[in-house]
């Protein structure tokens, strides 16, 4: 976990960092951040509690506790990562721990869109490629340079392509992932929609 927190802002086109592998399918948001940590009115203190229960169970051998992973920022996961509750606390906890990008076989939908909304690009790869990367990362520390524009990742001795939806990619490259400003631009269209909708006056 990094001590200083600098949230992502603006255009995101390049992410460089050490990889941390977390093996397992269907890792849900209750595991990423157990419900008791949702008792808060800001996200500031979530970073240290990420995977708290899993980490306690593994007594120091959880990837998020291993010394060599402490300054990692690219998370490598398997399938259906982030399923379950809509809590943005989950990606916020990862972000505050230091994660800046996630590569996985597949992601749960709300988790994925929460990640976009706070500036964490999620990439997909085939099951086999993920396993290869995770294996490689265990034997040798993997430092990746991700180029979002070309959807590619390189390291000392690896060079591969990453999958990311074209629309999502555009959002990061243009800075539009931080949606509020874009949405606000269409304020007059929203006002018109408000007047047009058949139910506004009776509900």
């Amino acid at each position: 976990m990094k001590s200083e927190f600098n949230p992502p802002i603006g255009k995101i086109s390049q992410i460089n960092g050490k990889c941390i592998s977390l093996i397992g399918n269907d890792i849900d948001t209750d595991r990423i951040i157990p419900a008791r940590f949702l008792k808060c009115i800001d996200f500031d203190s979530l970073g240290k509690s990420v995977f708290e229960d899993d980490r306690k169970t593994l007594k120091g051998s959880h990837p998020f506790d291993l010394k060599e992973n402490q300054d990692s920022s690219i998370l490598i996961v398997n399938s259906n990562f982030g399923c379950g509750s809509s809590r943005e606390h989950a990606p916020q906890a990862l972000l505050r721990w230091g994660i800046r990008a996630i590569i996985g076989e597949s992601f749960a939908e709300i988790f994925y869109s929460n990640c976009i909304a706070i500036g964490i690009p999620c990439f997909t790869l085939t099951k086999k490629s993920i396993q290869n990367i995770q294996e490689y990362n265990i034997s040798k520390n993997l430092f990746l340079e991700i180029d979002l524009k070309n959807s590619s990742a390189i390291s000392e001795d690896l060079n591969f392509n990453l999958d990311i939806k074209e629309s999502t990619k555009k959002m990061f490259l243009s800075g539009e992932w931080d949606a509020t400003a874009t949405l606000l631009e269409n304020s007059s269209l929203v006002d018109r929609k408000f007047k047009e909708l058949p139910y506004i006056k009776f509900s």
């Binding site: 809509s86 809590r87 943005e88 606390h89 990606p91 916020q92 709300i110 869109s113 929460n114 909304a117 706070i118 949606a179 509020t180 949405l183 606000l184 304020s187 929203v190």
Partner: peptide
């Protein structure tokens, strides 16, 4: 939706 989107719905 997530919290950032809750903010967006409130604002827009």
């Amino acid at each position: 939706i997530g919290t950032s989107q809750v903010r967006d719905v409130l604002a827009t």
